[in-house]
């Protein structure tokens, strides 16, 4: 049987979980210690959001699986995050551009989800919005600093935009799951977020003296469980402890 609330919550949770996991790879490797702490703080925020969302998804599913089961014991094609968030960290510019595109989407998304008729999702959105505002400020300022910085930093952030922009459209992916829940006032109609998203993107790019890539090429598939080649390595590392020592806790 279809369980739209479960699928919807899981999709949001997986975006947070996988981006949090990716960002946590920076721990101990940041360009300077202050930025190392900033990135891992953001990673922790995202994993915290994922925890709340996965706990709620587990309740919605009602099949005895816990949030940890959902996080650590699914197969690759059972994760429904967008392909953007699973992309490799690359250099610092790639990490920041990935984060910035995601934050720019998440900001209006959480603003809208606060008004969901589902009280639990609304509460998670309200709490997460405060964190996301900071994430967006942090990533936007870096885009401006790098774009309007040196020749080298401008080139790197521009290369990162070319690499990642094609994944941005999938953030707005909707299907029957969304349509059903929109009609009940639970889900956000993502099309309504596009003006706010585009406005923020252009506002920052203008200050950064950058432009969006010409290419209109778009990639998607994550919401159906189709992932890019690096995703398998990511979940192998993320799941290692639960796979090697089933049911372990600490």
């Amino acid at each position: 049987m279809k369980n739209n609330l479960f699928t919807y919550t899981l999709r949001i949770a997986d975006d947070s979980l996988i981006l949090g996991q990716r960002l946590s790879e920076w721990c101990g490797h940041g360009p300077i210690i202050e930025e190392d702490i900033a990135l891992t703080n953001i990673a922790l925020d995202l994993i915290g959001q994922a925890t709340s969302l996965l706990e709620y998804a587990a309740v919605a599913e009602n099949k005895g699986r816990s949030a940890d089961d959902l996080a650590f014991l699914r197969f690759e094609n059972q994760y429904f995050n967008t392909q953007l968030v699973e992309q490799k960290n690359g250099d610092f510019a790639v990490t920041i551009v990935r984060q910035w595109i995601f934050d720019t989407f998440r900001l209006p998304f959480y603003e809208a989800l606060q008004h969901s008729s589902d009280k639990q999702l609304a509460a998670i959105a309200e709490k997460s919005l405060k964190e996301t505002k900071y994430h967006w400020k942090h990533s936007s300022e870096w885009i401006i600093r790098m774009g309007d910085g040196t020749e080298e930093s401008n080139k790197r952030v521009n290369d990162a935009l070319i690499l990642l922009w094609k994944f941005s459209d999938e953030l707005f992916y909707m299907d029957d799951v969304d349509k059903e829940l929109i009609s009940q006032g639970i889900a956000v109609d993502l099309e309504t977020l596009r003006p706010a998203f585009n406005e923020r993107i252009h506002y920052v790019l203008q200050q950064a003296t950058l432009q969006l890539p010409d290419s209109k090429w778009k990639l998607s598939g994550g919401r159906q469980g189709r992932h890019t080649e690096h995703f398998g390595h990511l979940i192998a590392e993320m799941q290692y402890m639960q796979r090697a020592y089933p049911n372990m806790e600490w």
């Binding site: 202050e34 930025e35 702490i37 900033a38 703080n41 900071y134 400020k137 942090h138 300022e141 600093r145």
Partner: peptide, 8 residues
């Protein structure tokens, strides 16, 4: 950046 780093 200094305010943000201090915050973090």
């Amino acid at each position: 950046m200094a305010v943000e780093n201090a915050r973090d």
